[in-house]
Design a binder for these strands. Structure first.
Lengths: 247, 247
DNA sequence: ACACTTAGTGTCTCCAGTACACAATCTAAT
DNA sequence: ATTAGATTGTGTACTGGAGACACTAAGTGT
């Protein structure tokens, strides 16, 4: 049986036009945008108005243009929909069931993004029309296969959280250890021991006291910490140049 | 600014034809097929004959058809190129730089697969024309972005190897502990302590003595083990139904 | 000044990872 | 039959991180 394959370059007898005529498949990017308001973990959604999913929350996404890289597309979508540049962004995986989109064959490449609520609500942002933060605990149905995608994104986030300090992308510059612990508990879903948590985090040498204290709380104020930039640069430099941690 | 988005279903004013006209982008699947001959870790490649990569090794891949899921496409390609059904198969990630393919815009979704050499060389297989196993240590250049893809696949394999017993997909039914250790050392790239390795593996309760011994070796023969199917079913069932471990 | 709320701290136990050396079993050669 | 050569197979002691656990400190509001 003769081989002919324009992808791998065996026995070429085709050119650009062949490829474009092959492509009855559209490619989209969908982003699971996680936000944290010091209370709950939320996802940015919009309301779908396409049958049969009308009214259900949907992830933020768009088709990929012919002249932009996948990562660029994700970045563009985030910029368009949240107004923020330089979010933390990481590819998860691609979903390509034939019938996943009612209007035709659309393969979607998914990303997850982390947003500080303080950035999202700051000046200069232009949130998508009708976009809405929904707490993960409140989501039980979504349009398309987006609930599945969201769950995969959450798994990825959980794994990642234990590997490197991406949590910094969800917290303000100054934060307290109890706040950090609450973030962990919210994402991982199980309560943690206060003393062991502090011991562990401090031993990583990734944060340092800022000298400041909490204000306007009706109880003993917590010390505020911030990320140790030197350590960060040394061991987790990919978290500085924000977008796209490859590997 | 008005929103209009056929992906998420805001203000729909388009239908199937719109999507297909949008798609100037082709989608391919490329597989990093790992094989192990009890000596080295190898990758199945074919020779590219497309400029400017003529002569370089290329991964096994093909365009995705309009009517097949991504996973089905990967499975089809593996079947076509190795003749084997039911390989272990797992999606890695997608690569979509605009200029990654000289013939046009092609986004590729990549998978890695694990093959026992004994399966590959058994009857009934119909390997791709000109396909060739190349030891990872011998690869320093590949066509397209395939070297990058291969490296990402190797990273994924290394991580996975420490999480679950996918190594069984690279070994014969009966294998010795020294053989298993050599496989680990080959993939991870660092030598391991014999006693600690055995202690660790045996403590997992995932393998059991087969009763047999090595034959035809010019030294003390090793005991042969095989995978404990009950334990496997209980804790790693996704390794049984071979293809596609999601999550 | 007292009650209330949350922050902050140290020790002990247990287990998993690591380092490490010698006896046992087979083949091949003499 | 004995010996040399090769590789398999085995146990113990040390170390460091994870986990369990209870009280004092520092603020606020009344």
């Amino acid at each position: 049986m003769e081989e002919k394959n324009i992808i791998t370059g065996e026995n070429i007898n085709s050119h650009l036009k062949d490829i474009e005529e092959h492509s009855k498949i559209a490619v989209s990017v969908d982003c699971v945008i996680f936000g944290y308001d010091m209370e709950e973990l939320k996802v940015l959604t919009i309301s779908c108005n396409m049958d049969p999913y009308k009214g259900l929350p949907s992830l933020i996404g768009d088709l990929v243009n012919e002249y932009e890289d996948l990562d660029q597309a994700a970045k563009r979508i985030l910029k368009e929909r949240t107004g923020i540049d330089n979010l933390y962004l990481e590819q998860i995986k691609s979903f390509g069931k034939v019938d996943r989109h009612p209007l035709g064959r659309v393969i979607t490449v998914t990303y997850f993004a982390l947003v500080k609520k303080e950035d999202y609500t700051s000046n200069g942002t232009r949130p998508a029309v009708n976009s809405k933060w929904i707490a993960l605990s409140q989501i039980n149905e979504m349009a398309f296969d987006h609930l599945n995608i969201t769950n995969v994104a959450l798994d990825t986030l959980r794994k990642k959280l234990l590997e490197c300090p991406i949590w910094m992308k969800l917290l303000p510059v100054d934060f307290s250890l109890p706040e950090l612990q609450h973030l962990f508990e919210t994402i991982i879903g199980i309560p943690l021991d206060k003393r062991n948590f502090r011991k562990k985090i401090l031993s990583l040498d990734i944060i340092q006291e800022s000298g400041k204290k909490q204000k306007d709380v009706p109880h003993r104020p917590a010390n505020l910490y911030r990320v140790n930039q030197k350590k960060l640069k040394k061991e987790y430099s990919f978290l500085l140049k924000n977008p796209f941690h490859h590997g």
